[in-house]
Design a protein around this nucleic acid. Structure first.
Lengths: 123, 123
DNA sequence: CCTTGATCTAGAGTGCGCTCAAGGTTGAAT
DNA sequence: ATTCAACCTTGAGCGCACTCTAGATCAAGG
């Protein structure tokens, strides 16, 4: 089994060491193994899981939701349908977000075109 | 010309009165006209502009960028290409955001499917 | 042995985008 | 004349997600 140092994991995930420790404190990952000196050793599984976490995080899921999500995944089958509801809710937010971004894109493209014409005139 | 009270504008835009005042303080809108008693009167143009602002805001553009954007739009043609650069930068961030959200959607859909199967088994 | 660099902990600080509190004014309605 | 809701200002407070500080510890290299 391969283990990864905090520095390695920071490099691979793009997260800072502080953020890694923060996520652990918040229960988003771990408990992370330690070596005899108390240093963290991340497993390949930890790394993969961090991939999922950062993906959801980047999509705007908050720490609290993420923690609940993690609890469900690591606790095995969900006791209720509530966690799935949470996912569905986040999913629908994401669909909305995409739509908002699309609208913003068209506004921005309009402005860019406008200023490009202005720039061409004044140049 | 039609004028709108703060309450009206809050209703129409979905922004709170506090947020409207905050945006004004931050230079995102106005100077907003006042009546004899010092109350704000928003014009149709203010309302339309607020539409653009909220659209960009929802897409994740920060207050500082928005302020620069506003300065450019209200100052006429841009003196340099810098504001257009800012828009392009935000645009490329938005394209990335959409991609991130898409990835998150597929992760979420996978998890939802997983827990639906689990739920069906345990039911 | 001593230095160096990576890591550790606890806890305070930061930046952003609002949001709320307190106390005062306005103007339409009763 | 009084009441009431809507509005005003200043300034403090909040929630989130980090981020930084300070001081200690550890493992390896010279």
């Amino acid at each position: 089994m391969t283990w990864f140092s905090p520095g390695d994991v920071a490099d691979r995930t793009g997260l800072s060491l502080d953020t890694l420790r923060y996520y652990e404190r918040e229960g988003l990952i771990g408990p992370v193994r330690r070596d005899s000196g108390g240093r963290r050793l991340y497993s390949g599984g930890d790394l993969a899981w961090l991939g999922v976490v950062t993906c959801l995080r980047r999509s705007g899921m908050g720490i609290a939701d993420l923690r609940r999500f993690v609890g469900v995944v690591r606790g095995g089958a969900p006791a209720s349908t509530e966690p799935v509801e949470m996912l569905r809710l986040h999913r629908s937010r994401l669909v909305e977000d995409i739509e908002h971004i699309r609208v913003a894109l068209s506004v921005i493209d309009g402005k860019i075109a406008h200023y490009e014409r202005a720039g061409a005139r004044s140049a």
